[in-house]
């Protein structure tokens, strides 16, 4: 698996250091519960940033703030240099086209077939009307995730791994520049989990996306991470690559790798 990772790890240069997402002193509470205490992070163009942390530490809340599903209480959250909370409805819609979000559950639309799921954002958001072009784009994406045969199936006929693949295809069909993955391998067996992790890398190489991957699956982190942040109690407590964190001084961080 390490070999596989190393071969794929030469994927993207992070050298340009152009921050596509920039977060400073971000705070978010639900009632009296402080979920994000003081978040600071940058996502650089072309990199895969893995955010590790125990369940309930605010990882998902952070990425939901990035797409405007949740609004921060204070602090700054800029994507492509624009403050998300200050965007108008139309600007937020334009931003969301550039930022793909893969939900933990894949969130496929139950009442639509796989093809209709992929067609939905093309016709509603990109306002595409050419049937042949739509079909071609859907087939290209489904082939990319290895599920062209499932084009006419309903989500209820798909396994957990297949749903994740279709969810990934539906997100990538908009050709986003940033991908946000919310626990992409949760609930999957180790083999499917590795396949999904490798697919994330493969899609990143193909579509040149910058990604934030929220996970507590170390195998997924090992395969996908260029850089990692460890979150605890609503703050980032450690940063580094996989090896640095694995052999670092912090006992809590090392406990993730055991």
């Amino acid at each position: 698996m390490i070999q596989n990772r190393e071969s794929l790890a030469n994927k993207v240069s992070v050298g340009s250091k152009e921050a596509v997402v920039s977060i400073r002193n971000l705070k978010k509470s639900f009632g009296s519960k402080h979920v994000l205490s003081d978040i600071n992070m940058d996502l650089f163009k072309g990199e895969n940033l893995v955010v590790l942390g125990k369940s309930g530490t605010g990882k998902s809340v952070a990425i939901k703030c990035m797409v405007g599903l949740l609004t921060q209480e204070s602090g700054s959250l800029k994507i492509f240099g624009k403050e998300v909370k200050d965007l108008s409805e139309e600007d937020l819609k334009s931003l969301r086209i550039k930022v793909g979000f893969l939900f933990q559950s894949a969130a496929l639309y139950d009442s639509m077939s796989v093809e209709q799921n992929l067609e939905f954002p093309l016709t509603r958001v990109l306002k595409m009307t050419d049937k042949n072009e739509i079909r071609h784009r859907i087939e290209e994406l489904l082939e990319g995730v290895g599920l062209l045969d499932a084009i006419d199936k309903m989500p209820s006929d798909l396994s957990g791994g297949m749903r994740k693949r279709v969810g990934l295809a539906r997100t990538l069909i908009m050709k986003p520049e940033i991908m946000l993955y919310d626990e992409p391998t949760t609930g999957l067996d180790p083999i499917t989990s590795r396949e999904i992790s490798e697919l994330i890398l493969e899609m990143q190489r193909k579509y040149h996306t910058s990604s934030v991957i929220i996970t507590h699956d170390m195998a997924c982190a090992r395969i996908t991470a260029d850089r990692m942040l460890v979150m605890s109690n609503g703050e980032f407590m450690a940063e580094g690559n996989y090896e640095q964190l694995e052999n670092g001084p912090n006992e809590l961080v090392r406990s993730f790798f055991k």
Partner: peptide
């Protein structure tokens, strides 16, 4: 649809 995040998925896709 809300529980399974389908409504959120529609919203973040820009639809």
């Amino acid at each position: 649809m809300k529980v399974s995040e389908q409504i959120d998925a529609m919203e973040v896709s820009g639809a």
